[in-house]
Amino acid sequence: MRESPGFTAIVVLSVLTVIEYFVSAEAVAGAFFWLLIISIAKAAIILVAFMHLRNIFGNEHS
């Protein structure tokens, strides 16, 4: 994994997407709430792992 930065992130994202799909397909109770949580989690992963959100607060070069 050391050689492939971002790989963990994409795996987690894919898993979350699949979970998301099944939450909807199986009509889990409170699906709306879970979908919201999963979406926010996915967005957060992209923001932090891929987009280096922290960089705008520090001055270092990614």
Binding site: T17, E20, Y21, V23, S24, A31, F32, L35, L36, I38, S39, K42, A43, I46, L47, F50, M51
Partner: peptide, 17 residues
């Protein structure tokens, strides 16, 4: 990435809910 994040929200909103 930003366009991707938008889709992260659009996908459940348009397909799943």
């Amino acid at each position: 990435h930003f366009v991707d994040i938008v889709w992260v929200f659009f996908y459940p909103v348009l397909y799943l809910i």
